[in-house]
Design a binder for these strands. Structure first.
Lengths: 259, 259
DNA sequence: CAGTGGTCTAGACCACTAG
DNA sequence: TAGTGGTCTAGACCACTGT
């Protein structure tokens, strides 16, 4: 049982990197380690393809138990940043993994891209649920539903036409708030935990009205998305029916293969 | 330390269900339990919203340790079938979670839907990589790349036009095999481990040629997808550039929110 | 307050991969 | 054969939730 066998000097390996955990912190130890590993990968201190070093040695070096170290590593494997091979070791993945697809918010996406997003609320009213909306939200037909219709702009140019239906009483949504930020940010801010969503992405030609609203020629191809979002308990939170200018917008995402 | 405290009789709870593990099996214990829990949920034996019972008691009942039971439960939480709340318990999720988005194969999707998929190989040749393809695959421009162009049919009707580029030498793909099944199934069969993919989904109007191939009017809206697939080691395995008849096809998928 | 999941430890044996 | 990750155990203390 050798305690000290430092084969330091091999650049790109983890042996040369200094990780440390703070036991006084309320942040879980495995999470602290995971963050440091992720940062090292992102900054290139852990080269793609390099081995992480075995778990027992890493645990000993940090004063942690092996299960704790495994938990940290596993969380990064789940993110797609690391790959484990039995009998070989844990390696940093080569390719550029960014994010395994989130419940994307158009507003946030535009803002992140420096596109100066803006919103114009076209319609805002509580209405009885139609059959389609009632089915999507799992509420009785005719029950009260908040219907919001918005035009999303980037750099002053129309990008998308968004229609959302929300079960009445879930939250108090101001029309003014909807002009300032995205719906999902408002939902999260209201303490609603988004859990899953069912999405359908398709395409169709623009109607005359849509063409006018989006400044596209009539019959222009539009990207469509329908989405129902659920919370922890399985309640439907929101049903959206959106169209995007295909000339200006495309969905881009990374996905991981379930092992 | 009570070994037997069966509070049986509460229907819908897990207390009435009989789980058991086989220690002689090569299948991991946590996986056996996860499968049984998943089956019980799928068959409705564990009602949506019902509590699973605490982990210690479940472990005792099965003769397993708590970490093993936790591992089983965690795998179902990751799948979105269960929700854990501290101080409350583990509940079966209400909504219908099907699959958190896979690297979908059009062929498999059509087959699963009973659509009698067929493939017509239009083009099959090794060609020098163009700049676009070289960038997507991470190979030198002008290097050998297998270029495959296919028309996908369902019930004899054209559905999509598929163009794929694969680095030469990765596998021996027969044109005949491509008529019989999907590309991804062939890749997996060749022992290639798919790991992640970067996708872009958009829309545009059909060109004259595409319209003719897909039996759509000229200028009809088409759904487009570009995808680069990577394996474990980060090598690009395949670059696809596809168009789908928007009148016949849409992408539908479920996704989970990263906690 | 009692009960739940969240985290953590210090071991153990096994299956797989490589040289 | 040596080294790796994969699995498993039997405890422990803590944080949070509800009553």
């Amino acid at each position: 049982m050798v305690k000290q066998g430092d084969s330091a000097g091999t650049s790109g390996s983890s042996a040369t990197l200094q990780f440390s955990v703070d036991r006084g912190s309320p942040v879980p130890l495995y999470f602290q380690l995971a963050q440091q590993l992720e940062a090292a990968i992102e900054q290139g201190k852990l080269a793609p393809g390099s081995l992480l070093g075995n778990e027992i040695e890493l645990a000993g070096r940090l004063g942690l138990s092996r299960p704790t170290v495994r938990q940290a590593i596993q969380s990064l494997v789940d993110k797609g940043l690391l790959v484990r091979r039995r009998g070989v070791g844990t390696q940093v993945v080569h390719s550029q993994v960014k994010r395994p697809l989130e419940l994307s918010s158009l507003y946030d996406d535009l803002e992140a891209a420096g596109q100066q997003p803006a919103t114009r609320v076209l319609h805002y009213a509580v209405e009885p649920a139609t059959a389609t909306v009632a089915a999507a939200l799992g509420v009785p037909e005719g029950s009260d539903v908040l219907f919001v219709e918005r035009l999303r702009l980037a750099h002053g140019e129309p990008m998308a036409h968004l229609r959302n239906h929300l079960p009445s009483g879930l939250l108090t949504l101001g029309s003014a708030e909807l002009e300032r930020t995205g719906l999902y940010r408002l939902l999260r801010g209201a303490g609603i935990t988004l859990h899953s969503a069912r999405q359908t992405v398709g395409a169709r030609a623009a109607t005359a009205e849509e063409a006018a609203q989006l400044a596209e020629p009539q019959g222009a191809p539009l990207l469509t998305m329908e989405r129902t979002t659920f919370d922890d308990t399985g309640r439907a939170i929101e049903f959206g029916s959106h169209v995007y200018r295909a000339s200006r917008y495309a969905f881009e995402f990374q996905l991981l293969v379930r092992p």
